[in-house]
Simulated scan of single mutants.
Amino acid sequence: MRTVHLLLVAIALMSLTSGTMATVVSAQGLLRLNCTSFILYPSKPCDPAICKSSCTNIHHGVGTCRKSSFGCDCEYCPPSSTNST
């Protein structure tokens, strides 16, 4: 019986966490279609200025340092195409 209770608590926590994560991701705008994300300089410490300029100049994207402080997370999202009439 105790195992069943623990399993139910684990499922409840996972569902709460996944709902919270989806909200966080959509609130930060990280969940975008047609975007490409890759890591520049994965084994080097990240310098925010170099990361930003390299990503912008080379890939026309937005570069941010990763939480691990190694590598530059470069994300490129192509401009959205809108039909104008």
Rank of each mutant, 00 (worst) to 15 (best):
M1Y: 02
Q28I: 15
F70K: 12
I50G: 04
C72I: 12
C35R: 00
N83T: 10
T3H: 12
C77W: 00
F70Q: 13
R32E: 00
P78F: 00
I11C: 14
S53Y: 04
A49C: 08
T82G: 05
L40H: 05
S26M: 08
K67P: 13
R2S: 00
G61R: 01
T23P: 07
Y41H: 14
Y76F: 10
C35A: 09
N57R: 05
K52D: 08
P42G: 04
P79T: 10
F70R: 14
G61Q: 00
K44W: 11
P78A: 06
S54C: 11
I58K: 09
S68Y: 05
M14G: 09
A22D: 13
T17I: 15
N57Y: 03
S43L: 15
C55R: 06
V9W: 02
L7Q: 04
C77R: 01
K44D: 03
E75K: 01
P78H: 00
S37A: 13
C46E: 01
I50D: 07
A10P: 15
C77Y: 01
F38L: 12
A22I: 13
I39K: 08
I50K: 15
G19Y: 03
M1D: 00
G61M: 01
S26E: 07
R2A: 00
T3D: 04
T36R: 11
S53E: 05
T85I: 08
T56H: 09
N83R: 11
P78L: 02
A12H: 12
G71T: 07
R32F: 01
V9Q: 01
A12M: 13
T56D: 07
N34F: 01
T56E: 06
S84I: 14
A22S: 13
A49Q: 03
R32W: 03
V62W: 02
V62M: 03
T56R: 14
V24D: 08
C51L: 03
I50S: 10
G29Q: 03
S80R: 15
S26T: 10
A12R: 05
D73Y: 02
T56N: 07
P45N: 07
M14S: 15
T3V: 15
M1S: 06
S84P: 14
I11H: 09
L31Q: 07
S37F: 02
K67D: 08
A12I: 14
N34L: 06
Y76A: 02
L40V: 15
D73S: 07
A49M: 09
N83I: 14
I58L: 12
P48G: 08
V9A: 03
C77V: 00
T20S: 08
I50A: 09
L13K: 07
I58Q: 09
T36W: 06
R32N: 02
S43A: 08
H60I: 03
H5T: 15
L40D: 11
T64W: 08
P45T: 10
L31S: 11
R2C: 01
P42T: 06
L16K: 13
L7R: 05
C72N: 11
C65M: 12
G71F: 05
T82D: 06
S80C: 09
Y41A: 11
L7A: 01
L13M: 09
S53H: 14
T17N: 14
D47V: 14
S68F: 11
C72W: 06
A27P: 14
L16R: 09
N34M: 10
N83Y: 04
S81T: 12
S18R: 10
T3Q: 09
T17F: 12
G29A: 02
